[in-house]
Design a protein around this nucleic acid. Sequence first.
DNA 1: TTGTAAGCGTTATCAC
DNA 2: GTGATAACGCTTACAA
Lengths: 369, 369
Amino acid sequence: MLRQLTASMAYTTKPTENACNMTRRAHARIDDVARLAGVSIATVSRAMTKPSQVREETLATVREAVRKLGYVAHGHARALASRKSRTIGAIVPTIQNSIFAETIFALQKTVRAEGYVLVVACNEYDLGGEIGLVQELIECGVDGLVLTQSLHRAEAISLLERFRVPYVLTWAYDSEGHLPAVGFDHWRASSLVTRHLLELGHRDFAIIATTTEGNRNAQDRLRGVIETLQGSEIELPGSRIVQSSFSFAEGRKAFRQIIDLGHRPTAIICLNDTLAIGAMAQAMDMGFKVPRDISVAGCEDLEVAASVVPTLTTVRYPSWEMGEVAGRYLLALIGGRSPPETRMFQTELVVRASTAAPSKRMRTKRKFV
Amino acid sequence: MLRQLTASMAYTTKPTENACNMTRRAHARIDDVARLAGVSIATVSRAMTKPSQVREETLATVREAVRKLGYVAHGHARALASRKSRTIGAIVPTIQNSIFAETIFALQKTVRAEGYVLVVACNEYDLGGEIGLVQELIECGVDGLVLTQSLHRAEAISLLERFRVPYVLTWAYDSEGHLPAVGFDHWRASSLVTRHLLELGHRDFAIIATTTEGNRNAQDRLRGVIETLQGSEIELPGSRIVQSSFSFAEGRKAFRQIIDLGHRPTAIICLNDTLAIGAMAQAMDMGFKVPRDISVAGCEDLEVAASVVPTLTTVRYPSWEMGEVAGRYLLALIGGRSPPETRMFQTELVVRASTAAPSKRMRTKRKFV
DNA sequence: TTGTAAGCGTTATCAC
DNA sequence: GTGATAACGCTTACAA
């Protein structure tokens, strides 16, 4: 509730009556400022939003009145009249995953620099109904919307277009390149990791994969590994690919599962860092020396994980930059300027101490696939 | 921008003209729904917000019209007329720190369940001007505001009270108990850790502390350790307390610094988990076995860190619960219900593998302070 | 450069 | 239960 009125301020009271005793109201309105400054409300409005159109002297008077009364504009009234709210919405699966937190943080900073505030909603991987969220944010009157890993892209977009709300997709894949989307090349990310291990001389792999069902990004990552291996004429038996869900413990379990197969690969590629860290921990618990006995690599930079386990070879995803670009894109669209090109961000391999060439000991002990 | 009008819709056109051809407009308004349903706009409004006051049959007609037109209410107009916006604001230092992310996530979930959306703003530890942010959110017309570790509490509160915006402080300390605040007992948290080590038989400590300047929480944590030690007649020489900033690398550096003193404590208490993990990593790099040679404990549960380094003895801060309570508190205040009691959350010691009784080897090798 | 006044799309009061 | 209509607090086209 933005303002609390005294009883006498109810609908029956005439506006002119209020005008006389602003002391009875909770806070100042534009007409209070106008009266104190001795100008019209239009001038006050202009002084607030287009100061260049107001004479220097008048401006000073108005500003003084604003200061004296502690006037703060009523955003909803302003939005209703001007048809712009200076708010931007963002929908993310969760804010608890540091990769999304980073994007949101960057986005928030970017739009705030232009006077926009950010409305954040989490769809919790659709448990709450993504389309409902989009509609809610439209109802809130956001000037633009950022969608992250949208699960119902087509519906969300048609809704946004019907309401003429500018939008941009993040963490998204757009094969045709027609949609405003910024994302990562997940295929390339996991391919980078794989090539790195191939170049070190590894020929004997296992993959700890995430579930790929309905997740294009995860599919791309898995394909990136498999196709790169195929490029080197290496076929991976299906049993060497373990599917896991997202957790440290799952990474441990998957590692055990691989070792239980009775065949030790020289390198393990994990399709995300949480799994990789779990696998590494399990390897060490089981007496493996990393990377002497086995190399472990991840495919997705978890900022926090990287600071905690700074030895993991992985791929850096510039999620901060993505947030910035998404913000700038929307701001341009809203401001009627031509937006920057949307694009596929390139990821970058970060080689750390968890990978090395297979040791002689490994080579002699193992038969290749 | 919520709606785009065609040229003919400019101010010169009379409302009654618009009414006839809604096809030329971007989307439906309440009067379009009313016309299609054959009722007045007042009825439509009631059907949307107080369905119980509308006859079942009328309700169905209106709902059908809403569906047909894809009508979505204009939040700003609604907010202006009703004086409530169904948005709640939250100011946090950053969303990148997982403890705040967790609180925000819980808050978001709690308020969304009641139909509110969350506007998030980060003050980046005041680099952006906290009071400005508060004013911005008031201008946005939030129905309530959550402040986190507010650095300018007095000013923020006076502003909020002037505008009659309900608020609640989180991660906050309120010695008098007059303010609506939910926080943690940091003194107790670090005291718990200290007592645990004392009970294991440790007498020889070092502390890796955070900067305490202007940070009441950090001060409390440090006092918790020192005063608990004093309770056992243990005085810590100042050189055994190393001040660090917040990072993994700083934890490493601080550990080296302590060892460089030439005296090895049997236990190290770190005032946050990031420092603790850094210290542990450094210890292991330097050939220490944890906890055989040295015990390491933290004072602040970092969710991600805990999942990555699941061996760290630390204190769990229920930040999720705090977000929930903060949300419920505001919702109660807004709804005119009596709010739940604000309180100091109790933290809870989580003993893991990084602490143990000092070994005989340690005991014989060391002289006590 | 400034003032006048007509919107912006709802809700809430009051009469029926 | 429902309808007519006056707010809600601001922006902006147009006139001065």
